Amino acid sequence: MRKLTYFVATTVDGFIGAPDGDADFMYAYADQEFVGHLIAEYPETIAAAGRAHLGLADAEPKRFDAVIMGRNTYEPGLKAGMTSPYGHFREQYVVSRSLVEAPAADVRLISGDVAAEVRGLKARDGLGIWLCGGADLAAQLADEIDEYIVKTYPVVAGTGMPMSRVGFGVRPLELTGCTAFGGGQVITSYDVKR
């Protein structure tokens, strides 16, 4: 069975973006060592435009071959003309109640019960499923997430968009990995204890 992994960037105080969702400020805290690790270990999570620039156009996926994102996560790329930001994935999903037609042939829309759709995806053969974001979608899928991989940047935001809007509820995790980088970034991975 495939796993749903919430692979997400966050500040030390747990925000994935500014109050409006913009996360560009975190890129200032991504040094060469950290980016090199992301390229080596998670090449498929780099959007198509970045893959071409980094020479990853033909890089094989290591962990994920499906991506699911909320409309707000998809929107910035769409506004920049990237209708298929992860076209190198076998499956690309956008959860939206407002889009009635997919902007690209290889993007599939989910407008109904997203948890049921994800359970169906998990039952299929393949690599893992990357939950790309955001906070509302992470809340809707809280009971379907099997693994968290959290890229923590060495910055405190004070307020902003949280990792999830699920509300209070204790969900035990088991630490499965921790890698610290010289620039202060840390990648921690956790399995969800069921």
Rank of each mutant, 00 (worst) to 15 (best):
R2S: 09
K3I: 07
L4Q: 06
A9Q: 12
V12P: 04
V12K: 03
D13I: 08
D13M: 07
F15S: 06
I16R: 10
G17P: 05
A23L: 05
Y27W: 12
A28L: 05
D31K: 05
F34A: 03
H37K: 09
H37D: 13
L38T: 00
I39C: 05
I39F: 05
E41V: 07
E41F: 00
E41G: 03
I46K: 04
I46H: 12
A49K: 15
A49C: 02
R51D: 07
H53E: 15
H53G: 01
H53W: 11
L54V: 00
L56T: 05
A57Q: 13
A57I: 02
D58Q: 14
E60G: 07
K62Y: 04
R63T: 11
F64P: 09
F64I: 09
V67N: 07
V67K: 04
I68K: 03
M69L: 12
G70F: 06
N72W: 00
P76N: 08
P76G: 11
K79Y: 02
A80H: 01
Y86M: 11
H88L: 03
F89G: 00
R90L: 05
R90T: 11
E91W: 06
V94I: 14
R97P: 02
V100F: 14
E101I: 03
P103L: 10
A105Q: 13
R108H: 10
R108E: 09
L109T: 12
I110F: 02
V114L: 05
A115L: 14
A116Q: 10
A116D: 11
G120R: 15
K122H: 06
A123H: 07
D125T: 06
G126A: 10
L127E: 00
L127I: 01
W130Q: 04
L131S: 13
G134Y: 04
A138T: 07
Q140Y: 08
L141R: 10
L141D: 10
I145V: 15
D146A: 13
E147W: 04
E147L: 05
Y148W: 14
I149A: 13
V150S: 10
K151N: 07
T152C: 06
Y153L: 13
V156T: 07
A157P: 03
G158P: 04
T159R: 13
G160R: 07
P162D: 08
S164R: 01
S164K: 01
V166N: 14
G167F: 03
F168M: 12
F168E: 15
F168L: 13
R171Q: 10
R171C: 01
P172A: 11
L173W: 14
C178M: 13
T179Q: 15
A180Y: 00
F181I: 10
G182H: 02
G182T: 06
G182V: 01
G183M: 06
Q185V: 13
V186K: 05
V186D: 05
T188H: 07
T188S: 13
S189C: 08
Y190W: 11
Y190A: 01
V192F: 14
V192N: 12
K193C: 14
R194W: 04
R194K: 14
